[in-house]
Simulated scan of single mutants.
Amino acid sequence: MTAIIVAGVQYHALCNPVIFLDNKQMNFITFPEPQLRSFTEQVFLKMGCSEADATLAADVLLRSDLRGIDSHGVARLVGYVRLWEKGRINATPNIRVVHETPTTATVDGDAGLGLVVAPFAMKLAIEKAKIYGSGWVSVKNSNHFGIAGYHSLLATEHDMIGISMTNASPLVAPTYANERLLGTNPMCYAFPAGKYPPVVVDMATSAAANGKLEIAQRAGKAIPEGWAQDKDGRPSTDPNQLKAGGSLLPLGGDKDHGSHKGFGLSATVDILSAVLSGANYGPWVPPFVAFMEPSANPVGEGIGHFFGAMRIDGFRPADDFKHHLDNWIETFRNARPVDPAQRVIIPGEPETAFEQERAINGIPLIDAVVNDLNELATKLGVAALG
């Protein structure tokens, strides 16, 4: 299944609502979640990861696929392997705290998988919050950490609000610019509710995540206007323009639609993730693709992340908060709609629906991704997906 209905809106797992609904031309193969999980673990083991790290890294990727965020799931596995082959990912990192106070810390990821480094840092923030009410951890010398939502949701399991963000390789032009200076720089806030799933605000600060353009390229589909511009700064709906020297646009698309706000949010992520931690920032962030070399004159170490955990009972009793967040959810769900057939969607609701559906019916992958993974299996000597 490539789409589900949530509150009258058809959500496609590859991108935003009501985009690419003509996906019938795309070929999908559905795999049971345990099969993909086992395959992914075997790949990480072949990279030299410990069993614990391979299990954790696979869990982060599979959670992305389960939640319908296909651009950050197993489709990214080939990219991690290529970076490892180039010596840019350390499969056996010595992840350590290099600066610390009771409520804050900076972690050096030792060039490890961000899929492993990020949970280490978030769990550290949670442990600090258990003692002092809140914990804040910045990270340097890391790599791509998967979906931000995975890490923020760790805090909600402890009646805490979770915050996670990361900078990324420069693909986004700031408002008024025609130069790649920022990454898609996602941020996520997760809030535990009572009888409902957590409210999860997980988003890129660009108009679209690069992974969505990659999926569009594989599918041979156009992208919506406002996502990207060509090398001359002109709006483009061609997802291949990014490879041709173009750039993504900040959230808002252009100056007439609030792109300065997306620029400001992206700047915030970059500063907290990297300027604060000692990681590379702005145009110096190393690229995720292996064929592009990192800057010869870096200003920091690796990619940077930032995490926060706040105990709800540091502000009010947790049960009171969750009761009122349930009420908040119901109030917004019942808002008077423009279209009677479509109610308000609560942040995180489509991802929860996908997770419930895919856990039962399996995870669909487009055939191009399956081919990439089977080629990877042959190269590494693991069993192919079939």
Rank of each mutant, 00 (worst) to 15 (best):
V344P: 02
G308N: 07
K322D: 07
L325M: 13
V338I: 15
P350H: 08
A341R: 12
P364M: 09
I329H: 02
L325N: 03
L325P: 02
A359T: 11
T331M: 10
N327L: 13
E330G: 05
T352M: 12
I312A: 03
H324M: 09
R311C: 04
P340S: 12
A318G: 07
L325V: 15
P350I: 05
R311S: 07
G308E: 05
R343T: 06
E357L: 11
M310N: 03
F354A: 00
A318D: 01
A359K: 14
P350E: 05
E357P: 00
D320Q: 12
T331N: 09
T352N: 15
W328P: 02
L325D: 05
E349N: 03
A353E: 05
E355D: 13
E330I: 15
K322F: 08
H324D: 15
F321W: 09
I345V: 07
I360N: 12
R358T: 11
V338L: 11
N327C: 09
R333L: 04
N334M: 15
H324G: 08
I346R: 01
F354M: 01
Q342L: 10
R343F: 01
I346Y: 04
Q356D: 06
T352K: 14
F332M: 11
D326S: 10
I346T: 02
R358K: 13
R336W: 05
D367Q: 10
I312L: 12
T352W: 12
R316T: 13
E355W: 01
I312C: 03
H323I: 13
F315A: 07
I366T: 05
A335Q: 12
F307E: 06
A309N: 11
G314M: 02
F307R: 08
I345Q: 00
G348C: 04
P364K: 12
